[in-house]
Design a protein around this nucleic acid. Structure first.
Lengths: 249, 249
DNA sequence: TAATTTTTGATCGTTTTTGCTTGATTTATG
DNA sequence: CATAAATCAAGCAAAAACGATCAAAAATTA
């Protein structure tokens, strides 16, 4: 691969995700870490991106909203450990559902090379899945721009066409009394539907989600397994009520 | 092989892939490395491409001489002129279908600010549409990685849920006798379905598509309007057979 | 046909790029 | 604040690409 082509790929990645990890760039270009580093230095020299620890990001002009880009670095490690464990649950030949959201997004890099079929309603997921050449179906329906998720009644109908061996999704809140919840009722409805179509159901949640309640409830506590790094006060209460796997990174 | 022929091949390769490796050019022309090197030097001298380690790449558009750069922007201009005109046909309140492909992609920036609903099967289109905050639905179904388009029987079924005021799509070939065609029959099927669901049907095609025939036919000549910049030999024949709008940039 | 010019392909020493290693630096975490 | 993990920069050696040179082949001209 020629240098301009690599640079092109790097710039497109940065433009698309507002951030790019060196490891991902190594994957998508086939070059070594050293080469990518040198490329990033060079591109920074030209003012085309900003070098950051672990990769590069958009040349932040001013007030950028904390979109996918920053979310990625925030609880990145915890999320990655959870995502990695979740991915290890996926078996060759399975058909799985990946909900929109940053944790399931992290899963995808760990799914590389598996012979699986993925259905998703997340636009970012789609991009990553095509990059990794994983067999993919997208749920049709209304595109909610802020979260880049496909939702709405059309999406719910389309979802019904599938049956899943496993589904993986994030959540905004987990509560002993109220179960799983997320702010947007439309997204809650999609999650609920996906759960009902799956044999095995996994909710991925870092510790910050525990004992939080949002507007749209989408499942009771005992309707899904939880994969988390939560080791807080109520862990035993949760263990009594549902199946919970604590991952320590 | 004659020198101009080699140069032609080199330029086409660079134009097509935005980059060309010397080894590949050696293979595709049958000439030696030395010869290719000399060719590249010469072509660079003429400002037609940029020499890089290992081969050649497109001229970086901005601060470069006209020649190739001009050709590209001119080509881009044509496409953009077609896209711009097509976008002007869209009325507030309309529900339109945008097929996957580069020309309809160009349309999106011209649709900014319009109060419309867009349905698409193109992943790149999706990204652009979310960027421009245009009300969007995505067709569900199998994701073909290479073209980043949603296709297959599921996609066809899902598409049937909609009815469009207008649809816009590209094509690979237009022929007086064989109508519109594209290489992949699956994509042809989607196009055909979308056409059947639309009140007004527009095919966007630059002049290079005329008198070309691909494997998958998706419509007869009289089943859609053509928006193009073609002013070639058979223009009058086309005018007799169908509704064709020639845009001059 | 013979002489001359141009183009081509191979060779070879030099330069550039690349990937790995190592020790330093930064970041995360308790 | 201290420790562990990840990331980084610099140096180095191997590989790839380069450019200059020259003789053979092809085209042109006399």
């Amino acid at each position: 691969m020629l240098t301009p082509e690599r640079h092109q790929i790097i710039l497109e990645t940065v433009k698309k995700y507002h951030t790019a990890k060196i490891k991902d760039l190594v994957r998508s270009t086939g070059a070594s870490e050293s080469t990518i580093r040198r490329d990033l230095d060079q591109l920074e020299q030209e003012g085309l991106l900003r070098r950051v620890h672990g990769g590069a990001s958009l040349r932040a002009s001013a007030s950028d909203e904390p979109s996918m880009g920053e979310k990625i670095t925030k609880y990145h490690k915890e999320k990655n450990a959870i995502a990695s464990y979740a991915a290890s649950l996926v078996r060759d030949g399975d058909c799985i559902y990946l909900d929109a959201g940053s944790t399931t997004y992290e899963m995808i890099s760990h799914l590389y090379g598996k012979d699986i079929t993925v259905v998703t309603n997340g636009l970012d997921q789609l991009d990553k899945l095509t990059e990794y050449q994983i067999k993919t179906y997208v749920v049709g329906g209304y595109v909610k721009h802020r979260t880049r998720a496909v939702i709405g009644t059309v999406a719910m109908q389309n979802l019904q066409q599938y049956r899943f061996d496993q589904c993986f999704m994030g959540t905004n809140g987990i509560s002993l009394r109220e179960g799983f919840s997320t702010p947007d009722p439309e997204e809650a409805a999609i999650k609920s539907t996906a759960l009902s179509l799956s044999q095995e159901r996994y909710i991925l949640a870092d510790h910050s989600k525990f004992e939080e309640i949002s507007f749209g409830k989408f499942a009771n506590l005992d309707e899904a397994y939880i994969v988390t790094n939560y080791e807080g006060l109520y862990l035993n209460d949760y263990k009594e009520k549902t199946n919970i796997k604590v991952v320590t990174s």
